[in-house]
Design a protein around this nucleic acid. Structure first.
Lengths: 218, 218
DNA sequence: TATATTTGTTAGACTAACCTAACTTTATAT
DNA sequence: ATATAAAGTTAGGTTAGTCTAACAAATATA
C-alpha cells in the first residue's frame, strides 16, 4: 500500500503531466515546488517511485507516470473529488473551503467507503469546481475547454471549471460574481498585458491575463 | 498539532483509564499491547507526551491523562463516534464494518468538518455500538451500565452497548441474534466457569463469561 | 561555441516512530 | 526475606521523509 506521501507525489505528477497539461512530462524542480519540498527530497522519492514501477524516470531525464502510476493517481483524484462533492453538497461547505479538507480525506483507504459515498452522492460527474470525477474503473471524461483568455472580444461563454482550487483564488472568483455555470461576456482585451474587461450578470469587472488563464469556459 | 500516532496513544489511555475503566491509571505494557507496539516504543512516546503535558508519568510509575490530554482524547473519541454514526446511518455500513474505517477518519483535522457532520447527523447522542458521543465541549454522559455477566438468573435486560468493537466480536454478537436494544433473558449460569444460557427473541444460546463481560446492558 | 544559468543529483544529517537486546526496578510467591 | 517473575527502561539500530551544502549535467545566451 502507498504512503500518503507517495500518493501526493503521484497526484502531483498526474496534474503536471496528464490532466489538462500542456506537457506530457515533468521535471524534478516543478514537482518539488508543487509539493512544497526541496528538489533533493523529490529526487529521493523519484528513485523510490521508479523502483515501484509507478513512474518512468532516468537520471537527469523527464518524469512521467507509468500506467500503474496513472491508475493510482486517478484513484486519488477520484477520492478527492467525491469528498469535495460530499462537503459541498451535503455538509454545506463553500466553494473555497472544500479543497483543503479533501486533501486529507483523499488518503483514507477503504474501497467500500468510496463506493458507498459515490452511491450516496448519486454518482456525480463533476465536483464543485467543475472538474470531472473519474468512475470506479478510472475512466474520466476530459471536457473540451478553453481558458477565458482564449475567448474573443464580444463573445459570451460559460464558466465550467477553475484551474486553481486554492481558497484565495476561489474567493477572488466569487468576488467578481463568478461561480460554476456563470455566463461571462468578454467586453474588451488590452493588447499590452492581456487585461480583460468582462461582464457577469450585468456587473463589469477588469481581470488580469493570469486570472483569465485560470478560468475554464465552454 | 498532534500526530496521528500521538492521538492514538491518548485515545488508548482514555479507554484504559477514563471511560468505563476499573483502574484510573495504566501501565506501559498494557498500553503497548493495546497499540500493538513494543513496550520500548511506548516508553519513548510516554516521555514525549509527558513533555507536552498531556499525561502524568514518572519513571516506573503509572500513567494517567492530564486534563489537557483528556480533552484531546475526548475530541478524538468524539470524531470516531460521529464518523461511525455517519457510516452506519448514511452509508449503510454494517455494525461490524464501521470501526476500522472510523479509525482512519478520526484523524482528519478540521473543526468545521466535525461541527457540520454532527449537524448533518442531527446531533446524535450514541454511536452504532451504543457508546455515548461527546459534545463539542467534550462533555459525555456515562450511562449507568452493567455487563451481561452481572445480571441475575431469571432477569431480563436490554443490550445498550458492546465493549469490544472489533469486527470478529460484533459478527459473533450478531450470530447470537443480538443487536442494540435487544432484550436478553438470563436463563441459567454455571458456577464452574460462568457460562450462561440466554434467550433472545425466543432463541436460546450458550455464551461464555468472557463474552458476557463484553456486553453492556441496562 | 564557450560560458553562465538553470536544473538535477549526491552526500551527510535530522526527526518520528518503530525495533531488539540487555538491563533495572518493582511485585509475587514461597 | 529472598529469589524469581513481571514490568519497565535504556542503548543502539532501522526506515521514511525531510533538510542543507556541494557538485554535475543540461540548457540558454552572448
Amino acid at each position: 500500500m502507498l504512503s500518503q506521501t507517495e500518493e501526493n507525489y503521484l497526484k502531483a505528477l498526474f496534474h503536471l503531466t496528464e490532466e489538462y497539461a500542456d506537457k506530457p512530462e515533468a521535471g524534478t524542480n516543478e514537482l518539488a515546488a508543487m509539493l512544497n519540498v526541496k528538489p533533493a527530497t523529490a529526487n529521493d522519492m523519484l528513485k523510490k517511485l521508479k523502483e515501484k514501477k509507478l513512474i518512468h524516470y532516468e537520471k537527469y531525464g523527464k518524469i512521467s507516470l507509468t500506467s500503474l502510476g496513472k491508475k493510482q493517481a486517478i484513484d486519488i483524484v477520484r477520492k478527492h473529488r467525491l469528498w469535495e462533492t460530499f462537503l459541498y453538497e451535503k455538509l454545506e461547505f463553500t466553494w473555497d473551503e472544500v479543497h483543503e479538507v479533501a486533501e486529507q480525506l483523499e488518503h483514507i483507504h477503504s474501497p467500500k467507503l468510496i463506493e458507498k459515498l459515490e452511491k450516496f452522492l448519486g454518482y456525480p460527474l463533476i465536483d464543485p469546481h467543475g472538474d470531472a470525477i473519474p468512475n470506479a474503473k478510472g475512466e474520466l471524461k476530459l471536457q473540451a475547454r478553453k481558458t477565458l483568455s482564449q475567448i474573443a472580444v464580444g463573445k459570451t461563454c460559460k464558466l465550467v471549471a477553475v484551474r486553481d482550487n486554492s481558497a484565495t483564488f476561489l474567493q477572488y472568483v466569487v468576488s467578481v460574481g463568478l461561480g460554476l455555470s456563470s455566463k461571462i461576456k468578454v467586453l474588451n482585451r488590452q493588447e499590452f498585458d492581456g487585461t480583460m474587461e468582462i461582464e457577469v450578470n450585468g456587473k463589469k469587472s477588469s481581470v488580469s491575463e493570469r486570472f483569465a488563464n485560470n478560468i475554464f469556459v465552454a
